[in-house]
Design a protein around this nucleic acid. Structure first.
Lengths: 344, 344
DNA sequence: CTGAAAGCGCTTACAG
DNA sequence: CTGAAAGCGCTTACAG
């Protein structure tokens, strides 16, 4: 491109520049920056180095550092869908933790050009990331390929058979709170609109429901549980199943908000009032819940904490270590308009 | 950490390994990989190099390449909120384009630990990114700081005064389609529930509304436009204003879906039926629109194309070039249940 | 046409 | 206690 004005030398300041100006060796500058405990230097000299860095606006070059240390100072987070607010919160937590630890975070969805996992294997091969967080829907079979490569990776919000590296939420507890909320309102016939039987989160939510029902001395019976697929359409169909059961339940705990959207539609179409004829509570709080008609009561789970904790563990553990953690942060019911006492 | 089993050498294959096995010089391998046109080598040799790369599973080390070429092969995308589906689509498009061009994409929100822009300046200082896409809400004042650094950056979906580097959607055209849809249904009194007067997107949508109304020979009058702030609460209040106007409008074009959520609530509370008493159409299609009651008619804009095109332009233009592009991809009305003919 | 060699900007084991 | 030097894995101008 002839005639284009040549870009002025950006004057990138290097470590060598800092050393020259401060009158010390480059190694001293490096050690000051990295807080090397083996460096003993007069406080005065250290301060001079720090001042020089500040004055020249020096920033270590990430590529040089990575090449030398064989670390990318970058993690990857793999999610199925950016548009799902559940993942938005996980991303936020992971991003914060990464920044705090001096790492970058690359977030990618399955929608990428190269098929999801292959893309990540490429990143690993190029040493562009130091580890991977999987919040997506990769099959155990796919992830098997990662196991051979001795790469740090962690499952987020999900367990798969044979893996000892995951961080999950306390879905049992969240589900228990939902049931307790309904029971406290006076409901006795509480149904569960569950997720896919194959999904780990769905299984744990169902287990929490069953346990809480038992603890409250309430009967469950298999007909009071209908499985759906975490989508509005599936939720609508499952709600129709539950409405057909006699005696009809007076309340339902729905495994996720998307299913609850469909469930509310079914109830609306059936001419039933919420919560008059049926109370509805769903797992995971998100702003959409507040805008449904009626506004949906939910269980707020520490999704941001999940992202944060997952990244911290990825950064600070060895790839071979077992990690089987349940995020400890509190879980709570967010009461809106969709739950109330049963009509006598 | 004593006693920890030493990790087996991962056997990272380097360019030198490939050269040795293939029996050529490292520079030949490098040139084959990078398709250097100045390399003349027998087809047979080239194939041998390629085969060796394949067989050894060689992947170029990104850090070494970056250090040498002074390019990070990474772009940054800055968004205000991961949970907003509008940005989810932009991210998707940008991610695809980045992958296709051999770049990575770091997406970050203002929620990071370091205050948004400073975080990016750090990334730039460290040469971790080659350029920045701003889809966020940074003020012109903040962005002024970037102008001094001669860094490639681009505004996405927004213009600010004095900047000649942006990519936007055809909001005028989208708004025009909305008005045309309503006019075709027979509406004459069409109101506009606009966005913030200061927002560039809101101004362009309003301009599109005004122009289309004029083209259809319909009167607008300032009372038929109410400004809100792109939130459900603001939308609810603005809808109340519009309901007070006489003669009452029979249809409203809402500047975004969040405002429409509030507008629908106001209409519901006022006992008005949609679309019987009031047709509602909103800008930007998203799955939430299909789940509102009634399901919301929208204008689908090429958000993914916006992300894709922005990244392509960022990657292929010089920082000094003017970029003032409107994404050319088609815009269309997605008809759902919230629009219909006016009741006579 | 091909290959040897320099060098990008760091870190760190090691010599003094 | 301090600093010189090697080297991480590439790319590319240049010599042969």
């Amino acid at each position: 491109m002839p005639g284009r004005p040549k870009q002025a030398h950006s004057g990138k300041v290097t470590l060598a520049d800092v050393a020259t100006v401060a009158g010390v060796d480059r190694s001293v500058v490096s050690r000051v920056i990295n807080d090397d405990p083996r460096l003993s230097v007069r406080q005065e000299t250290r301060q001079r180095v720090l001042d020089t860095i500040e004055r020249l606006g020096y920033r270590p070059n990430a590529a040089a550092r990575s090449l030398r240390t064989a670390r990318a100072y970058m993690f990857g987070l793999f999610i199925p869908d950016f548009a799902n607010p559940v993942y938005a919160e996980i991303i936020k937590g992971a991003e914060q933790a990464a920044n705090q630890l001096g790492y970058g975070l690359m977030t990618a969805s399955s929608g990428g050009v190269r098929l999801g996992l292959q893309h990540y294997l490429d990143l690993l091969g190029q040493s562009r990331v130091d580890g991977l967080l999987f919040a997506g829907e990769e099959s155990g079979h796919e992830l098997e390929r990662l196991r051979s490569a001795s790469v740090p990776w962690l499952l987020v919000n999900r367990r798969i058979e044979g893996s000892r590296r995951y961080v999950v939420l306390d879905d049992e507890r969240g589900s228990g709170l939902a049931v307790e909320h309904l029971a406290a309102l006076g409901h006795r016939r509480i149904a569960h609109l569950a997720g896919p039987e194959t999904a780990d989160t769905a299984r744990r939510r169902r287990a929490g429901y069953t346990a809480a029902m038992a603890a409250a001395g309430l009967r469950t019976g298999t007909r009071y549980t209908a499985h759906a697929d975490y989508t509005p359409e599936g939720g609508a169909a499952a709600m129709r199943e539950l409405l057909a059961v006699r005696p009809r339940p007076t309340a339902v705990f729905v495994a996720n908000v998307a299913s609850a959207v469909g469930a509310l539609r079914t109830l609306h179409e059936a001419g039933l009032s919420v919560p008059g004829d049926m109370s509805v509570i769903a797992m995971h709080d998100m702003s959409l819940a507040g805008h449904l008609v009626p506004a949906l009561t939910t269980v707020r789970m520490p999704l941001e904490g999940l992202g944060r904790r997952s990244l911290e563990l990825l950064a600070t553990t060895h790839p071979q270590d077992d990690i089987t953690e349940v995020v400890a942060e509190p879980v709570e019911v967010v009461v809106r308009a969709s739950t109330g006492p049963p009509t006598p």
